[in-house]
């Protein structure tokens, strides 16, 4: 199994949405319009307005990725069935509360985070605990591209071409003990570089570091990816540089960003959103259209692509986000109780 390349299932047909080039071509040049509304009085909506201005560059400038994001060597995905979310949207619309609760805050502030040098420690119930450096992240395992749907618990979704390696490779490397039943993730938290960690208010009242967890079989599943890049280059900081988890059949908050420690354990690890609101966010957080969030429906989602207001981008949400190959892991689990 280890040498055969795993291909995730895809079930998406959306012919009516456009790709990155068309998106850029459509952009209007509205550079110099002075545009200030009542709601720009406050910092966070000011950012929304700033974002509005930022988008009026020429299309040429926009497609160029900042040179600071290292181009990666990787095996390209052959999957052409899904319309990708444009690069600009993937890197400007993020939930990364360590930099603020507004979706545009990570893009505005994440550059203050140091991602190189980096140490990722893997320890706990294993024979060979190890640490991985920034360079190891790109060189230790062969990198490959995986085009995954990302379904946010807030009922929007994107399609992102990640570059990374399977988490299973990393776990095998440290030789887990048979007593290891869960994998706990801890992410970077540095008050000097992250305004949301420094100020409880800016960070949405969350206790940092952000922690997440998976069951061992979920962590070993070939879909579970450690991403180090997207769109062919190293991850932008706001997307969780230099290394993040991507678990495509679970809501986005499970896919922890900027990971510094992975610990193998025999106990179900605490997870940040579950601690904060246990009746709203469970440990499993599998995408499931029939289990609604207490405050909103999860039956459908809006796919973020292109086309502005008129895009007919609402689609039905699928069980496990359409990745039906994971279903067998949950055959004995009541998904309504274990949401």
């Amino acid at each position: 199994m280890s040498n055969k390349r795993f291909t995730p299932s895809v079930k998406l047909t959306e012919a009516d949405v456009t790709d990155q080039n068309v998106f850029n071509g459509r952009r209007k040049l509205l550079k110099s319009m002075g545009f200030l509304g009542a709601s720009s009085l406050l910092a966070s909506s000011g950012q929304a307005n700033a974002q509005l201005f930022d988008l009026f560059g020429s299309s040429e400038e926009e497609t160029k990725k900042p040179s600071s994001y290292l181009p990666l060597e990787y095996k390209k995905s052959k999957d052409k069935s899904q319309v990708l979310t444009p690069y600009e949207k993937v890197v400007s619309y993020n939930n990364f509360y360590e930099f603020g609760t507004d979706k545009s805050a990570p893009a505005a502030y994440a550059h203050e985070m140091t991602t190189n040098p980096w140490t990722l420690k893997i320890d706990g119930l294993c024979e060979k605990p190890t640490t991985i450096s920034y360079d190891d992240l790109h060189n230790k395992f062969p990198l490959e591209e995986r085009i995954y749907r990302l379904r946010c618990v807030e009922a929007w979704s994107m399609v992102v071409p990640w570059v990374g390696f399977e988490l299973a490779r990393l776990i095998k490397l440290v030789q887990p003990l048979s007593s290891a039943k869960y994998v706990a993730f801890e992410t970077y938290a540095n008050a000097d570089e992250m305004r949301g960690v420094k100020s409880r208010f800016a960070g949405g009242g969350i206790q940092y570091p952000y922690v997440e967890g998976l069951r061992m079989d979920e962590a070993m599943h070939p879909l579970t990816l450690m991403a180090v890049g997207l769109y062919g280059s190293a991850l932008p900081n706001q997307n969780g540089a230099p290394v993040r988890l991507v678990v495509p059949w679970k809501y986005g908050f499970k896919s922890a960003k900027s990971i510094v420690r992975i610990r193998l354990t025999d106990k179900k690890p605490p997870t940040t959103w579950n601690i904060l609101a246990p009746h709203e966010y469970g440990f499993y957080a599998n995408v499931n259209p029939t289990v609604s969030h207490p405050r909103w429906s999860q039956a459908s989602e809006r796919r973020i692509t292109t086309g502005g207001l008129l895009a007919r981008n609402r689609t039905e949400t699928q069980l496990f986000n359409g990745y039906s190959e994971v279903a067998s892991m949950y055959s004995n689990l009541n998904l309504k109780q274990n949401f």
Partner: peptide, 28 residues
């Protein structure tokens, strides 16, 4: 302001999710 927001929204110039931007800014 409201008309401008709508115009930019139509042209996909309101960030990644123009619908959300419009809902938020109009509510505010």
């Amino acid at each position: 302001y409201l008309g401008g927001l709508f115009y930019f929204g139509l042209n996909d110039a309101l960030g990644a999710d123009p619908v959300k931007t419009l809902i938020h800014n109009s509510g505010l």
